[in-house]
Amino acid sequence: MTRRLGRWAIALGLLIMVVVQLVPFYVALTTSLKPRTDLSSQWLFPTSGLYLANFQTAITDGHILRAIGNSALITVVSTAIICLLGALTAYPLARRTTLGNRVVFSAIVGLIMIPPLSILVPLYSLLNQLGGINTYWGAIVIMVVTQLPLSVFLYAAFMRSLPIAIEEAATVDGASTTQTLFQVVFPMLKPVTATVIILTSVSIWNEYALSVFVLRSPDVRTIAPTISTFVASQGSNLGAAAAAALISVVPVLLAYLVLQRYFIKGMVAGAEK
């Protein structure tokens, strides 16, 4: 009897948690489909037909689609650089474990601890001197230096688990270092590269703390800063804010639906450091 009761309590608790996670999306949906004058409860869908002007406002005034394009560009380029640099950097650190290299490795991993805002002032003024404010390259440099340490860590951990014998065999067969690296080692890195791509692209796609200061012009702004400025500019027009938020969720939702398995696996691998 108590056992059955316990099972019901657990199921109820789970159900509540699932509902809690869906409520914000639901409320955003109902709000986005009503005009500002409709003061019916957020818990109800509109009764007098769907109102789509909020989505139009979000796209024309909020420039949400351009923001998605900017985020996509910055995410793809930064992630590609992070994968390549991460693997190249990790290789000597994983395979040539001299004292110096161990120090370099710990120092790079230690960089993960630096909170982005704590270097805001010097980083902003440095980028300002170099002309990197409001540019794609400025944002890409920031993304690369903030995300690279984790990628180096993950690549190095994975490389250490690969058998050395394969690389030795390649060398015995006369392969040069470059050949060994690009034709023997890199092809073995597919699983960890999937993890790195997922972790870094999610972080970069959602990055806000530094991009809100560095990307101020609407032409280059990414999603997170665009949403926050748009919401602030709309004041009481919650419908348009909700519409903007929902549009920006669509790409993430699609990626999650298609790649769900990899997402959760990748997050676990990234967390277990």
């Binding site: 914000p24 999306f25 409320v27 955003a28 796609w205 959602n206 806000y208 999603i223 997170a224 800063p225 949403i227 926050s228 919401v231 804010a241 909700a242 903007a244 938020a245 920006s248 969720v249």
Partner: peptide
């Protein structure tokens, strides 16, 4: 993004 969740 926490910005989007926060907005909702």
């Amino acid at each position: 993004s926490p910005v989007v969740m926060g907005t909702m």
